[in-house]
Design a protein around this nucleic acid. Structure first.
Lengths: 186, 186
DNA sequence: CCATGGAGTGAGTGAGTGCTCACTCTTGCA
DNA sequence: TGCAAGAGTGAGCACTCACTCACTCCATGG
């Protein structure tokens, strides 16, 4: 999308706003084809800017990838915090609320796939591995703080999450058989 | 490695043997840097053949990737079958034996990362997604047949496996804190 | 002993792909 | 009103990568 329809005049936006857009479209683009599988040209086009300017906003592709990952992780954390707070305010069980929050999160395919790609990228990008670990640590602390789960329950909470991630990533639905139906329960 | 040390004479091997070698080195190469991140030249060099010949053995890179994935899945299945059979023969619990078998499997980093990359690749390669689903179905049937686990137990078995995969992929060790220690228990 | 088919390769090729540079246009403000 | 600072880009450089082609060498059976 061009900034404006008029060819003689264009309205500029700030770099921060552009960065925001790039992160948004970048996340869904990367989700589809992976970090290495998605060229920067594609993201630039989807964001409505030139590739040259994309590289002004994010000096390297790696920077962009990291930013997308961090944003995605941040979003998930926010969703959990919100769910817990809401449950607590309503006098409900925060544990169940967070489980349900994850179920809703899974609806967002680009968020989901960013998680998967993040784990895959960790092997060859040490910074990604570090970010992932930091995020797991934060999330763990959050769950520990907001719920009364035992370590075993927390383990199962995370384990179930990872399994649901994978089931969604490989496109397993209940129609694929009882195995899928069983493994996909929350 | 050249077929022979002598420069004037070389001994040929069969295409099948070469293919075997390629799958072997391909798996560990892909494991490190991912399917898209690993060029075919690198695999050819590691296998001791020319890139041109690699493409005679596997007509496309995609074929090679699929073959590597299938081989890795097959190996894991074999390990489970063997563990279950062994436990059954020794009058032990096949359920625990299979859990332990997975623990040992995790030692093999290239096997592990192939799993992770497989899930990530599923998004953009429908054949990979299909192979993954078929493999999950087989593995599920295997576990159902060889153990007396309830569906809930099977669910937890797979979920724990996925979590351990991820923990290993992001390089989380007990030194990273109690969260890692808790999440890494089998 | 030679012909046939398979093993194996050097040297490309075209289509990307990350990233740069020199440059133009817009906007806020002194 | 002029101008510095920032938004934004066209064109292209240097390099990579999957894949090809024409070719040579080796082994085997008739």
């Amino acid at each position: 999308m061009a900034p404006t329809a008029s060819p003689t005049k264009r309205t500029l936006s700030t770099a921060d706003v552009r960065r925001e857009t790039v992160l948004e479209v970048g996340m869904s683009a990367f989700a589809e084809r992976g970090f290495l599988g998605t060229p920067t040209t594609e993201i630039a086009k989807a964001a409505g800017i030139s590739q040259a300017y994309l590289f002004r906003l994010f000096p390297t592709k790696s920077d962009l990838i990291l930013a997308v990952i961090e944003r995605s992780n941040e979003r998930i954390k926010e969703a959990f915090v919100a769910a817990a707070a809401q449950a607590r305010a309503a006098g409900e069980d925060p544990m169940q609320a967070m489980g349900e929050a994850y179920g809703e999160l899974l609806e967002d395919r680009s968020m989901l796939m960013t998680q998967i790609h993040q784990h895959a990228a960790a092997a060859s990008m040490p910074e990604v591995a570090a970010v992932s670990r930091a995020w797991f640590a934060e999330l763990y602390a959050l769950v520990e703080r907001e719920t009364e789960m035992t370590p075993e329950e927390i383990h199962q909470f995370f384990a179930t999450g990872m399994l649901l991630n994978v089931m969604a990533a490989i496109g397993a639905t209940d129609e694929h058989g009882p195995w899928a139906a069983t493994l996909r329960v929350c």
